[in-house]
C-alpha cells in the first residue's frame, strides 16, 4: 500500500500518445477494483466471525493490531471493512476514523505486517477506503466496553 519512494514524479509530454502508452501504470497500484461510493455496503465493518482456514488466521492476526492511541484493536474499532483471501494473497480493505489521522502510515503498516506474519500468507495489500464513513456505531460491543473503561463516553 505504501508508495513511498517507489516512483518519482514523471516528466514528459502528456500530449504524446506513444509516450503515454509506454508508461507502466499497472505496477504502481495492483488493485483497481473499486467499489462505488454510492453503492456502499451496509455490512461493514466486518469482524471475520464466520471465517475459517487461512481467512480466520488473518482475522485473528488483525484482532491483535491495536490502535496507537486507545486500548482497542482495529477490528473492534470497526476499521476493517473487508478481507479477501485468494490462495496466499490477501487484500485488506480498511478505513480510518479521521482523514487527517497522523497515525495513518503506522496503522496501515501494522496491519500489513501482522497479516504478512500469518503462516500461509504470501503477499498482502492494504487499501484505505472512505465509504461508508466510519462512525462510532461501528465499534463492537467489547470495543465499547474497552473505550468506556478507558474513560471515553461511547
Amino acid at each position: 500500500m505504501t508508495h513511498d519512494g517507489t516512483a518519482g514524479v514523471e516528466g514528459g509530454d502528456l500530449d504524446d500518445e506513444a509516450n503515454d502508452a509506454d508508461r507502466d501504470h499497472g505496477s504502481v497500484c495492483a488493485y483497481t477494483e473499486y467499489r462505488r461510493g454510492d453503492e456502499s455496503p451496509t455490512d461493514v465493518p466486518r469482524t471475520g466471525a464466520a471465517a475459517d482456514g487461512l481467512e480466520e488466521a488473518v482475522w485473528d492476526a488483525l484482532a491483535g493490531v491495536e490502535d496507537p492511541e486507545m486500548p482497542i484493536g482495529v477490528v473492534d474499532l470497526g476499521l476493517i471493512y473487508d478481507v479477501r483471501v485468494d490462495d496466499g494473497s490477501v487484500v485488506v480493505e480498511m478505513t480510518l476514523t479521521y482523514s487527517g489521522c497522523p497515525a495513518r502510515t503506522m496503522l496501515t503498516e501494522n496491519v500489513e505486517e501482522a497479516v504478512a506474519a500469518v503462516d500461509g500468507v504470501d503477499d498482502v495489500g492494504v487499501r484505505l477506503v472512505w465509504s461508508p464513513e466510519w462512525t462510532v456505531e461501528m465499534v463492537s460491543e467489547s470495543g465499547r466496553d474497552a473505550l468506556r473503561e478507558f474513560g471515553l463516553s461511547v
Binding site: V9, E10, T32, G100, L128
Partner: peptide
C-alpha cells in the same frame, strides 16, 4: 490537519497513475 488529510486523499488517487505522494 483536516486540510492536510484531504490533500493526502487526493494525492492518493494520483498514486494510481504513478505519481508518488511524497514526490508530489
Amino acid at each position: 490537519q483536516d486540510e492536510l488529510g484531504h490533500a493526502r486523499l487526493w494525492y492518493d488517487v494520483l498514486a494510481d497513475v504513478g505519481l508518488d505522494e511524497r514526490a508530489l
